[in-house]
Design a protein around this nucleic acid. Structure first.
Lengths: 368, 368
DNA sequence: ATGAAAGCGCTAACAT
DNA sequence: ATGTTAGCGCTTTCAT
């Protein structure tokens, strides 16, 4: 029942060698006689030994863990109770319920976009071969951000991968100020000396415009992402580059929020104000799906009457009807690169903030 | 530059007390003079002390971390399907690329269903007030399962929360065999002495049938979930209970796989073989969405021509057009309960396998 | 109420 | 090539 887990000492005794030798075998250090290695290995098996991570971390000063943080803006939640000496564990009250509800909503929005799953997948793809696994944290409130910072300061994780969902997110700057290893997905809207991977959004917007124009569309319009974040701004800027170069005089725009609902609302408005539209560039696929829904509801055929271009090439681009022509963002690859950069900082192979920019690619399907 | 992180010793010196006293203050242990507490607290602030988690874990024998595992079936080569193109960069070979692709696909499927986000949200809601955060792991292959078991055996996490996506998933049984604390979402299809939270699926299916019949539908049919998992079987069984009681002679069924695409395919077939259908019960909301898409494409109005009932009450139930009448599964609450059960096992407050069954609830919207 | 001291299991000098 | 030994920073008896 309560048999203690075997330790290095036990294995050493079983193998008739010292702890150090066993440690060397386990950590794959050379200079160990092959015969002894074999004996040790057998002892490990027979004892069922598994190295104790806490003990190892204590001496190596490394948790071999990284935090994957989904952060937002948002100020203090009503009911921030943290701090070291924290009692009142039980007895959840109305505030907790409120906080839960807010968090559930945040989580629903985050997971509602296939984008986040791709980030996780890319990160896991990099980490797992290294026997590492991400700790998932939400940081949508002030107390949650404090938890993230504390988590890192305690050495529970060696660094953070940050995916922001809001422009005003103060986390990247906080992490930089604390000199904690961190890499962001996308350039933070709040300037901070922090590393990030990003996409050449402007180029992506340009690709969308050029494609729509090549398809002969002239009454083009765009449902943008949030214009307080660089991705939203730059995709729009690129789109305008394209239309201006082609001499398209006027491009109506409506700002969206990267959600399906915002895409629907934006397209309703666009259609009401500019019924002559024949091409739409949506700031992401989720909004593009909303755009298609609205068009269908209004009896406009896609692509015959109106061509639609999305952004991301997420799974909804495929499930959308019709399947979306979209600007592909290599999210998994970008996420893996984030993790790799972070590892380099943690290992000290790198010290100054860096950025890696990926190039988008047009994927043509049936919506154009 | 390289200032070491302050330790208990530093704080103790600063406060003019012993390490033990500082430790007591930090851990909220009584029997410490309030004045001294204050002094210590000030010293903690002035030194910027943060307790080292590894050191603490080493003595408490607790990681204060739990693993959230999304597991599937699959042997060693989960992605042995068709040869996807892959590059061989920095040491990684074709095999890695294949594994990555398989994993990305697995992740996409997992995150494609809003269900998983709700699980995460519920778990985080329980864990976060306790300053804990889940480590996210995928276990879709044999080696990945081994990693999970090792992770727990090393004490990197105190227990596992398991969400299975396949019937043949061997993980629950493995964890039980290793006597590692674990709680599953839903009863494992492979019997194992392991705790779980679940829904009264059968009752849910019954609710769906009764509702459809109350709406006057008689030509009812169902797109089931996978029939090798209990949830799929029982939802169907409950639905049949309802139709049989009402004397409906024949209920055609088509088996789906809980995915949008499978819902589409199933409904296409159903409509071809049973064009007279006037009511459909889908095994989950995602498939219900597919059902609605197919109906729309065939010019059938929902709910006038065909009524549709989903299952889960996930976010797609709301974004679907029309919004879905569905059988609500309180996923967040169930997930939080999972975490709570796990905590009880970890703390030794509980030892034998337990199950907690939640009741479903019908949510009526516009699809009926 | 506070302090002294003994480890927790491991790695990494250093010695042989 | 292998063993000895000194901690890593913390909690927790056991004294006082």
């Amino acid at each position: 029942m309560n048999r203690q887990a075997p330790t290095l000492e036990d294995v050493a005794r079983e193998a008739g060698v010292s702890r150090a030798t066993v440690s060397r075998v386990i950590n794959g250090i050379r200079n160990v006689d092959p015969d002894i290695q074999e004996v040790v290995r057998r002892a490990i098996d027979s004892t069922g030994y598994a190295p104790n991570r806490a003990a190892r971390s204590l001496v190596t000063r490394r948790a071999e863990t990284i935090a994957l943080v989904v952060s937002g803006a948002g100020g203090e939640n009503p009911g921030a109770k943290d701090g070291a000496a924290n009692d009142a564990k039980d007895g959840r009250d109305a505030r907790d319920g409120q906080q839960d509800a807010a968090q559930h909503e945040f989580a629903a929005r985050v997971f509602g976009d296939p984008f986040f799953g791709r980030v996780v997948s890319g990160v896991v793809g990099f980490l797992r071969p290294r026997s590492m696994h991400p700790v998932l944290m939400f940081a949508e409130s002030e107390s949650a951000r404090t938890q993230v910072v504390d988590y890192l300061r305690q050495g529970s994780a060696d660094g953070a991968l940050v995916v922001s969902t809001h422009a005003e997110d103060p986390l990247p700057a906080r992490l930089a100020a604390e000199r904690l290893p961190a890499v962001c997905f996308a350039r933070p809207a709040v300037p901070a000396p922090v590393s990030f991977v990003d996409l050449a959004h402007r180029h992506g917007g340009l690709l969308a415009a050029q494609h729509l124009l090549e398809r002969g569309r002239r009454r083009v319009t765009t449902v943008t992402g949030p214009l307080d974040v660089p991705a939203g701004q730059e995709r729009l800027a690129g789109f305008r580059d394209g239309t201006e170069r082609a001499g398209v005089p006027y491009v109506p725009i409506v700002e969206g929020g990267f959600t399906l609902a915002s895409g629907v609302a934006a397209m309703e408005r666009l259609l009401a104000e500019h019924p002559e539209v024949d091409g739409v560039f949506a700031g992401n696929d989720l909004m593009a799906q909303g755009v298609c829904q609205v068009l269908a509801r209004h009896g406009r055929r896609v692509p015959q009457d109106v061509a639609v271009v999305g952004f991301d090439d997420s799974s909804v681009a495929l499930t959308c009807s019709p399947p979306l022509t979209t600007v592909r963002q290599p999210v998994e690859e970008m996420a893996a690169t984030m993790a790799q950069l972070l590892e380099e900082y943690i290992h000290g192979d790198r010290t100054d903030p860096t950025s890696v920019i990926f190039d988008p690619e047009l994927v043509v399907r049936e919506s154009t």
